[in-house]
């Protein structure tokens, strides 16, 4: 009985430790912010069209984690919100939005793919006409520069420069999750996969 009486202590300690980590980086808010930016950059229609596919590839969360989530979620919602309204973020987003029209045909034909580290790459150069090869290479370079600037500015604008890599990780998942059917992406092992509905 004595052991039973004190057995809740380690359980509470573990749960408290978990809560601290989750509150530190507001993952849910970051996902929401990432989705908002992706909607703007890629166009909302595309994303709405694909919103149904999210459930297919969603992660199955263990029961204990769901329980923790219930405890943690209110803390996140009350404490943190990822701000994406800064002029820097808006400017980057607009530049990416304008560039997307030029990149989209090459997402569609597989010339460009989404990498697992939240960037893009010219994965199948033969899908890009030779005369456009330099132009598309430049677009890919510019896109990657803007994406890196976006992750950095989001961390800075929210007063947490140290969040940059976590924001980038969040985007890595969200870009792929919200990609159109037929687009190519890299899985965690670096293999190229094609998005299916």
């Amino acid at each position: 009985m004595r052991y039973l009486r004190w057995s809740w202590v380690p359980v509470m300690l573990i749960m408290t430790a978990c809560v601290t980590i989750n509150v530190y980086f507001p993952a849910a808010a970051a996902e929401k912010a990432a989705d908002q930016i992706i909607d703007k950059v890629w166009g909302e229609e595309e994303q709405q069209q694909n919103s149904g596919s999210n459930t297919q590839s969603s992660v199955v969360i263990p029961l204990w984690a769901q329980a923790l989530d219930i405890l943690v979620r209110p803390a996140q919602a009350n404490s943190f919100n990822i701000d994406i309204s800064s002029p820097a973020i808006q400017a980057i987003q607009q530049a990416m939005q304008a560039r997307h029209q030029q990149l989209e045909p090459f997402y569609n034909n597989g010339g460009i793919g989404l990498t697992s580290d939240a960037l893009v790459i010219l994965r199948a150069p033969n899908k890009v006409p030779l005369r456009s090869r330099n132009e598309v290479k430049k677009l890919v370079d510019d896109e990657n520069n803007d994406r890196l600037a976006l992750y950095r500015e989001m961390a800075n604008a929210n007063g947490h420069p140290e969040w940059e890599s976590q924001i980038r990780d969040t985007f890595a998942t969200r870009w792929i999750e919200r990609a159109k059917s037929g687009w190519w992406y890299q899985d965690a092992d670096g293999n190229w996969m094609q998005k299916v509905d």
Partner: peptide, 9 residues
Amino acid sequence: ESWASATLQ
């Protein structure tokens, strides 16, 4: 031209 116009925009 292809290289220069892509680089310099």
